[in-house]
């Protein structure tokens, strides 16, 4: 999430504020990717990282790095699409006021992101939810190797397949508590709704 957030929000901001050829198709593709199954993302990444793949020489398959790349790819469409919607839905006077008061382009961008922080943190919560609950991509590019690439969702799947339901439920509770804790931290940065 730490990698995906600046990238996704930055791309969302640029898409919302810049006019360039192909912008509209790019938005449509991004919104379409919201529905992409994580296992498909994992499959594509697997093909890229496998020995015969374009990124094969990097030898990243079945590593934590591959899992992180996969989760960034899963989070990006959510962050981009929701940031774009948040910034486009902002009061146009916010930008105009920043411009009229002499703000530079980076200052205007920061001001706008702060102004729409409630919606942005909702985007972050949503992306985090998608990442923390996904299993398909982690299994495909991580390989569920104990102590190396096993995370809580893949561990739950493994324990359940072995008939260890109690272990699965315990891990599920841990996952929910962690998710709740991190979402509470997001809510702190989100601040109060303006209305």
């Amino acid at each position: 999430m730490l990698m995906a957030m600046p990238l996704g929000i930055g791309i969302g901001y640029l898409l919302a504020t810049l006019e360039f050829p192909g912008r509209r198709p790019l938005i449509v593709v991004t919104q379409g990717l919201l529905a992409s199954p994580t296992v498909v993302v994992g499959l594509i990444l697997y093909l890229l990282l496998s020995r015969q793949g374009v990124l094969g020489p990097l030898q990243l398959l079945f590593t934590q790095t591959a899992m992180v790349i996969g989760q960034v790819l899963i989070a990006l469409p959510v962050l981009i699409a929701f940031s774009l919607a948040a910034i486009q839905g902002a009061d146009p006077r916010a930008r105009e006021t920043a411009v009229a008061l002499g703000a530079s382009a980076p200052r205007i961008a920061w001001t706008m992101l702060v102004e729409v922080r409630f919606a942005l943190m909702a985007a972050v919560c949503n992306a985090f939810g998608r990442v923390v609950s996904e299993i398909g991509c982690s299994l495909m590019v991580g390989g569920n190797i104990a102590g190396v690439t096993r995370n809580i969702p893949t561990a739950i799947a493994l324990e359940t397949s072995k008939g260890e339901f109690a272990q699965g439920i315990a891990l599920g509770i841990v996952l929910l508590v962690v998710a709740l804790g991190i979402n509470s931290a997001f809510a702190f940065f989100q601040g109060e709704s303006r209305r």
């Binding site: 009061d91 006077r93 411009v99 702060v114």
Partner: peptide, 20 residues
């Protein structure tokens, strides 16, 4: 020009105040 933005200030009919 940026230098002119420093000299000219515009205020909206219904001014926008930042959420600070």
């Amino acid at each position: 020009p940026d230098w002119l933005r420093r000299e000219v200030i515009y205020v909206h009919q219904q001014p926008y105040l930042f959420h600070t």
